[in-house]
Design a protein around this nucleic acid. Structure first.
Lengths: 258, 258
DNA sequence: CGGGAGCTTGATTTGCTTCAATTAGAGTGG
DNA sequence: CCACTCTAATTGAAGCAAATCAAGCTCCCG
């Protein structure tokens, strides 16, 4: 399937079309015809950028669209009845969010921007209509959701069973791979989230996260200046993750197909 | 959508058809026509029962079908390179498994029977073909996967952030609701998994799980005779879960539609 | 030059794991 | 049918990792 892709004469145009709207997840790994991509592109709405803290959609609101991150970053979170927010995911450029709303008709989580963020809106109604005509698109939607399930499972056990040190190493290497996937530097990047948000996501106390950053720096694995991170010894980081967990390998795996 | 379902004259037949093949997840919550259900039913293969420990599919094997549990129970697990098995999910009657394989073309996890188990095989190729003709089915497949994503997210944070006590309470109430969904008793049931497997899934030491069962019994919340569990005080259990987490509420939510 | 939030650092406590036995159960063969 | 064996489950004691409690620090913004 991926092999077929390579033989198509217009694959470069397709990729370009995808890239402009950050729909790489939806388009790149499959062999969509150029006209199909155009059709997909046609239903995508570019929304005005979100400022830090702006809410893209709120938990409980009716579901009408999924979203692709163009630039910036967002967090997904649920808010328990005692008002405590629980971050369930970070969304980087090129990634999709809102998929978890498909089954309920309303968003089970709230998404807000971590920094100035531009996104594309993909109305689900129209995407579904389009899917009926384009078998490849339908399949790709399923693929993405399946991948999502798997990544969640990986992360689930990454967080459930691993030590704090392993959790942070997993997060850093995961971010690295996800940035790399979008063509950004995999060894030097700026964390879009605060230490507090990062700790919340990892299920750790902020103090623990802070101590870990110190330890990683002392070990010579990374340098950290606020949110600016450099991975000095990626292999060392990778080694402490515990091997088994790597939601990122799967991202890399899909990228290779394109 | 769910409302439309109620008005169809043949909804009862549809449900019956679904129930016979344990495809409730796939059929019940949506308004599929009788002939559609028949078509779906036609592609489903009933495989011979699995004995305890039998492997349904192994990690790395090519993906060809998803499966529905008719009776019994299975576990999904990944095996890290050091040979340690990590249980990622339990699958009860009426539930689907194998969804996580759709994106990669091969199974990322291994599924094996916890007890004598009968399952239905749903060849994915044919399901996809069928989906093209039946919009409702396609949507439902997406719904299920979306729900799966959400449940995973819920569980992820249930396990990552909660105490051992909360984790076990969440598991017990979740199982209770899932059994109830299949029309089985929600207050008295037999655990399909060993303490060891249960602990593995929850990310706890078996000793901790054992101590927790004791504590729950001492508190008068449950009675436990080996794998036979009775929930004496469901509300107390529910209370200690921490409120926010409830992958099961969502299961119940879908049931209500039917 | 304050003021405040985010981050870091130190001291103490708690909860879970680990280590070490013991007990209970399930299956087996005499 | 009962002793025997092996594995699963339980229980106790000790150790450790991370949370919590409590200050300081630093940077940003007024």
């Amino acid at each position: 399937m991926a092999e077929q892709t390579m033989n198509r004469p217009n694959i470069r145009q397709i990729r370009e079309a995808c890239r402009t709207c950050s729909l790489s997840d939806l388009c790149l790994p499959v062999a969509l015809e150029t006209e199909d991509v155009d059709a997909l592109d046609g239903i995508v709405e570019r929304r005005k950028p979100l400022a830090r803290g702006d809410v893209l959609y709120r938990s409980g609101r009716p579901f009408g669209a999924i979203y692709a991150v163009r630039t910036g970053a967002l967090k997904s979170m649920t808010i328990s009845e005692d008002g405590e927010e629980q971050i369930t995911a970070f969304h980087l450029p090129g990634e999709l969010l809102g998929l978890d709303a498909i089954s309920f008709g309303e968003h089970p989580s709230t998404a807000s921007a971590l920094e100035t963020t531009s996104i594309c809106e993909i109305p689900f109604e129209e995407l579904e209509t389009l899917s009926a005509d384009i078998p490849g698109l339908n399949r790709q939607l399923l693929r993405i959701m399946s991948k999502e399930i798997f990544n969640e499972q990986e992360m689930l056990h990454a967080l459930a069973r691993r030590t704090a040190e392993q959790r942070l190493a997993i997060l850093l290497t995961s971010l690295s791979d996800r940035f790399a996937r979008r063509g950004l530097s995999s060894i030097r990047f700026r964390l879009p989230m605060s230490r507090h948000e990062l700790s919340n996501y990892l299920g750790l106390a902020p103090e623990t996260t802070s101590r870990l950053f110190r330890r990683f720096v002392d070990n010579g694995w990374i340098t950290a200046d606020g949110r600016e991170i450099s991975l000095i010894d990626f292999d060392a980081l990778k080694a402490v993750t515990g091997g088994g967990a790597s939601a990122m390998e799967k991202n890399a795996g899909l990228t290779k197909h394109s």
